[in-house]
Design a protein around this nucleic acid. Structure first.
Lengths: 234, 234
DNA sequence: CGGTTGTTTGAACTGATTCAATCTGTGTGG
DNA sequence: CCACACAGATTGAATCAGTTCAAACAACCG
């Protein structure tokens, strides 16, 4: 099975992406022309640490980033994902989470001091980011339900469904971008158990695997098992 | 043991609270004078349902509100709390969560159509709410770590520590506003187990209980057990 | 080829759930 | 003031889902 899948995700044009998400074209242009640099972020290497200054805006052009926190006992929890077209807004003060790449990613990084005045000057842009924040909030709530109330099978299946949507993949197949350890870090389990869940899902005929490629013969049934209701992704 | 503690939480002056949280006085006044009505919200009664329109701003004056979601199997997860002085911002479209009172609460409710123009007109107010949103985001991330990575004892202890801070109580004692069922709904457990955790904590001398009143003989040790780092609350 | 990362499997263990029963305050109506 | 209903807390026993530890295996990379 392929262990290191090529970053299959195609790079997106950020400006188009922002427009598709509802931002007016002329505002998207302003954002696009904001001084910024594109950076390659490698998986498994430290990128932004917990407790560091976070005075940057970041937009993911390709790949996949995660925000993570570590408990005092060192156990890691991934608390959010950022797919291509999504971003991480600056916050003042020290960030309580770190950032890492799940797949090799291209990230556009701008400074808060350039970003903030732009947003201040355009109420429409404000409203736009407001909505994005609310979407992220809704996803966070859904993750809490996932961790707190669903069994391990549903947790993994739900993550796959959400990932599928956020990658804009079809419902019948997808390429799983995560290692089993990362799925464990997202769903609050151990990698050993995630492995068993995958085996179970396959045994039940809910998925077929070929390396990281996953076929879903009956998407409706799969979503039922995952108790996945895509509404929260808007 | 007292079963129905009087809503011990004192009502706060919302304007003062907003100023204390960093909003400039003249902006606080504007918000304060926004058309709005005060409502009594009773615990355990439905207040705002999942999937309903959510075109209101709400500020908690006294008591305690929660946002909750239900899984398809009907299991309930509380995904956020709102203490006095905190608020719930409007979102466009249907909300994916319901709202209920944990304690009898007084809530100031305004319409989004009154609130939005005010925020649009004042970048400083924008920045203010931006920060509040980021605080809520940080709390959400911490809850994910709590549910995903800590054992049941730490989960309950952590919730108590956070509650203590957000209620502005001292570190050596507090009045627990939750039923054990609600703690279970927050920490992703069953009420039976929460009960056992409380018994354990007491047996270990980490807390002393008298009804809903909790004494914490050694706050530093308690926070260690909870792996509570208050930084995320700012 | 050797090193590294990720996946798979087994066996033993344990923390938490489930189900069911009991107990204890509180408030209500007679 | 008592009887009753009710919400919430407590406890026990059986069960089970998920962890832990350890080892083996597979795929890719330089």
């Amino acid at each position: 099975m392929s262990r290191h899948p090529k970053s299959a995700t195609t790079g997106v044009d950020l400006r188009d992406k922002l427009i598709a998400a509802g931002l007016e074209p002329h505002l998207a242009t302003i954002l696009d022309e904001m001084p910024a640099k594109f950076t390659q972020v490698e998986p498994r290497k430290p990128f932004r640490e917990e407790g560091a200054e976070r005075d940057e805006v970041m937009f993911v052009r390709s790949g996949l980033l995660c925000k993570y926190k570590s408990d005092s006992s060192g156990r890691r929890q991934i608390v959010a994902l950022r797919f291509p077209g999504e971003g991480i807004l600056p916050r003042d003060g020290l960030a309580d989470y770190g950032i890492q790449a799940i797949l090799r990613s291209e990230v556009k990084i701008g400074r808060a001091e350039d970003f903030d005045p732009i947003v201040d000057a355009h109420p429409a842009m404000q409203r736009f980011f407001w909505k994005l924040i609310q979407r992220n909030e809704a996803i966070g709530y859904e993750w809490l339900v996932n961790c707190g109330r669903r069994d391990s099978t549903a947790r993994v299946a739900h993550l796959l469904c959400e990932t599928q949507m956020r990658m804009h993949a079809g419902q019948a197949r997808m390429t799983n971008p995560f290692t089993q350890q990362q799925i464990a870090d997202i769903t609050g389990q151990t990698s050993v158990n995630v492995n068993r869940v995958f085996a179970d899902l396959e045994r039940q005929g809910l998925i077929k695997r070929r390396g990281r490629d996953i076929q879903i013969p009956d998407p409706a049934e799969f979503r039922r098992v995952a108790s996945f209701q895509p509404g929260y992704l808007r």
